[in-house]
Design a protein around this nucleic acid. Structure first.
Lengths: 257, 257
DNA sequence: TGCGAACCATGACCGTCGTCACATTCTGGA
DNA sequence: TCCAGAATGTGACGACGGTCATGGTTCGCA
């Protein structure tokens, strides 16, 4: 699971529709079938069901920072990430943004909105350049109606998300920003950490300090202060839009106080 | 729904096992059948299913502050509130407590733990003197397995809870304690507000300032300061373990900033 | 290679709110 | 009726962290 939950205090970053031209993106376009097969939710369907879904599904792309859909709006499809990363954002009154989850390859987004008729409660925004598959709601619902295992999978998934949200909140319970950032980093490491040669954990999500701040519910400045301090202490290697955890144990200590 | 979500900063209040003798409680003991019939989750089952559930279900009571079960522990039953109120609490490292939900008459608690094998992620604690029905997990699961409408109901309920949790978090997004308390009060009013003769909204949950603080994720002192100020301004009538909202519009204004 | 924009970094200032300390009011039970 | 303990209230103080201001660094693109 990838429930990395919290809020932010800053006005929304400007929408990047095209400011990082996706056409020239270095990422290769995956095939729709590959994306669907890699999906944790739909990857294990029967071949004929996959074919049925693929018929109306279309691959799409988004550049870094680009909005895939706004919250409240009635998206007619759900998305499955092929390559890159998408963040699910809740913008509240006052222009603040709350990043609720970060979805990586193989993960699907927009499910809540798809199952109920209602619009998705979260906006989707690309963290990096993204290729994703648009699966029409109607096709998905047709499949979902008569598919008990899929239903059960979904119940489990939703309860896990709820549990994760509660869990994260409790870890965020301390008002200390330092704790919250530590909690976010640990969560990210669990989901997207890749072991380096020297034993460090690199996060394969290209997060800026601003992104991290939105996840931890604080400001860029404070986030920078803390990550810089940790870098000096050898806990973290904070580079340009990139984070590597060098001392996970220390982060856990900080959490426990 | 009753998702009133947040955290606290204070060590757990002392466990009140019996300090408010439940035997002498003014509340009358309801009949198990009444409780089950009033349940939003199970109230609409077929008569024979109700009978089956009642066979092994037992009524239980808890005094104000008493712990019904600890989180993590393997509860063998789920609870349905008959009279009184129960809060679902997550205690995190450092002795802080996070009140995630407040459940009133007709609402069930411990579902997440019942459906998956795992223990419930939240502790249950009585806010006031409570009568509740203990429905054995095994009986519930037997019913649940072959009951599609129940399953669907549960999916909807869980997605609603998730949605509510996200919603609450975004309303809490502002760091201002004042906003958080306003958000909590509004949420409580939606669920448990009763219209008074003079148009004010009395919360039928007997919450102390400490309880309110745990819901808003702050300290008693700050909570008292704010509620006192609001009382002077005529927004709120804050009495002993009792809250009445006199100017809901003003609270909404505070939320919107 | 150079330019502009985003990103990272650091310092100063100050409001909010947590902490401690103590006074006052309310309540339930003996 | 009285009393202990809980609940409410208020003040002082200081730290955490948000805000503003300013400058250095990295990246993408021409």
């Amino acid at each position: 699971m990838t429930v990395v939950t919290f809020w932010s205090r800053r006005p929304a970053a400007k929408v990047g529709s095209g400011y990082n031209d996706p056409v020239n993106s270095a990422l290769e376009r995956p095939s729709p079938r590959t994306v669907l097969a890699s999906s944790t939710l739909l990857g294990s369907l029967a071949p004929e069901q996959i074919d049925a879904l693929l018929e109306h599904s279309r691959l799409a792309q988004a550049g870094r920072g680009e909005v895939i859909w706004m919250d409240g709006s009635e998206a007619s499809y759900l998305g499955i990430v092929g390559t890159g990363f998408v963040k699910m954002v809740r913008s509240s009154a006052g222009g603040q943004e709350l990043t609720a989850e970060i979805m990586g390859p193989g993960q699907s987004f927009g499910l809540l909105g798809a199952i109920e008729g209602t619009g998705c409660p979260l906006s989707a925004r690309a963290v990096s350049a993204v290729w994703y598959l648009r699966v029409p709601k109607t096709d998905f619902l047709a499949l979902y109606g008569g598919n008990l295992p899929l239903r059960d999978h979904l119940i489990r998934r939703t309860t896990l998300r709820l549990r994760g949200a509660i869990d994260m909140m409790s870890r965020m319970a301390s008002g200390r920003v330092e704790h919250r950032i530590a909690a976010v980093l640990i969560q990210l490491a669990e989901s997207y950490g890749v072991e380096e040669a020297d034993g460090a954990m690199r996060l394969e999500v290209p997060l800026s300090r601003q992104d991290l701040a939105e996840l931890a519910g604080t400001t860029v400045e404070t986030t920078i202060r803390i990550t810089s301090r940790w870098t000096k202490q050898g806990v973290l290697k904070a580079q340009y839009r990139s984070l590597t955890i060098q001392n996970l144990g220390r982060l856990l200590e900080i959490l426990g106080d």
